[in-house]
């Protein structure tokens, strides 16, 4: 039996909220280009007035790109193969 289920948009947003409300500094990001895994705090960060780009310290590939527009955050994580987040249980 297929244990997966379709989530509606609100449920998916709740899921993302669960992920990104944690302290992200120690989250481990795996580079989609070279496979190196580093904590967010160890990535090379370029904070330009146009947007922030988090790059792999091994190969400089953009892993996470964030732009704050007038109304929204735009988040591109297509350069990362995987992001591992450990819930901060002490905060709950």
């Amino acid at each position: 039996m297929d244990a997966s289920r379709r989530l509606d948009g609100n449920a998916a947003a709740g899921l993302l909220r669960e992920i990104f409300c944690w302290e992200m500094t120690s989250a481990a990001v795996t580079c989609g280009n070279c496979g190196a895994t580093n904590a967010v705090g160890a990535l090379i960060i370029y904070a330009s007035p146009m947007g922030t780009v988090l790059r792999c310290p091994a190969c400089e590939q953009p892993l996470v790109r964030v732009v704050r527009t007038s109304n929204d955050y735009w988040l591109d994580i297509s350069g990362a193969r995987c992001i591992q987040v450990t819930p901060d249980t002490a905060a709950t």
């Binding site: 146009m50 947007g51 790109r65 732009v67 527009t69 007038s70 109304n71 929204d72 735009w74 591109d76």
Partner: peptide, 22 residues
């Protein structure tokens, strides 16, 4: 690079097309 991340596809300064939807 920027047009796929919230910036306007045309980016005409005289029409102030900074972000998508402007």
């Amino acid at each position: 690079f920027w047009e796929s991340l919230g910036y306007h596809n045309d980016g005409d300064p005289w029409r102030e097309q900074r972000y998508q939807g402007d």
